[in-house]
Design a binder for these strands. Structure first.
Lengths: 108, 108
DNA sequence: AAGTTATATAATCATATGCTTATATATGAA
DNA sequence: TTCATATATAAGCATATGATTATATAACTT
């Protein structure tokens, strides 16, 4: 079912602070790239590249809505994913901040 | 409790095929470095360096017995560790092979 | 003490990673 | 079609990673 290749890829994707941060944000709710850029304060290509890794590792799902691409959590192929997600730090306050700044209005 | 630093380090340690292989072996039973070398067919320093990473990430425990250093699984600080371990491929046959070759006799 | 075996560390090297800037593609609006 | 916005890809670069060979350390044996 899950071979070493796939398992290693999954954990490699999880083995980066920035991606753990992104996944923690997606745990709260689906977000588009520009929102993640806003929260993390890194460049948009950096976020796009992280999203590609997460998608390749099958840890996120992608949904296009107009110009925006929304990403959401999806580790369904990994039996352990839920228990990992539970250990993510709580970042609801960061999403709150984002909303206060009104940026979310743009892509909804 | 578990910060991003620690979580990333854990998954980084898991994000390598060779180390997943080592952990899968340790899931079967405690092993010393020379036994792991024998199974993996890579150099002894390579194994030592992997063990250091796994130990730093708190995924294995170390026990010295004479000239030998034995390693065993220990992810107790990670709530998700057990469910990850369950997804490791079964490598009991590789341990069996090792025993057939009689190498285990040396360090017991 | 001298030799042997097991493990760890150091030095080196090729490849992978994560970021940046620059550019391309995709969608929507005028 | 032209312009603006969102996202993706390409190229370049500094650092990290995983392997090897060579050497150091630790413990047992004689």
């Amino acid at each position: 079912m899950l071979d070493w290749e796939q398992l290693a890829e999954c954990h490699k994707a999880l083995g980066d602070k920035t991606r753990l941060h992104i996944l923690s944000l997606l745990k709260v709710e689906e977000l588009c790239v520009c929102e993640i850029v806003e929260v993390l304060q890194i460049t948009q290509p950096a976020v796009s590249q992280h999203m590609r890794k997460l998608k390749t590792a099958k840890l996120v799902r992608e949904r296009r809505n107009g110009q925006w691409v929304f990403y959401s959590l999806d580790g369904s192929i990994y039996p352990f994913f839920e228990s990992i997600v539970q250990t993510f730090p709580d970042v609801r306050n960061e999403i709150e901040e984002l909303k206060k700044k009104g940026l979310r209005v743009l892509c909804n």
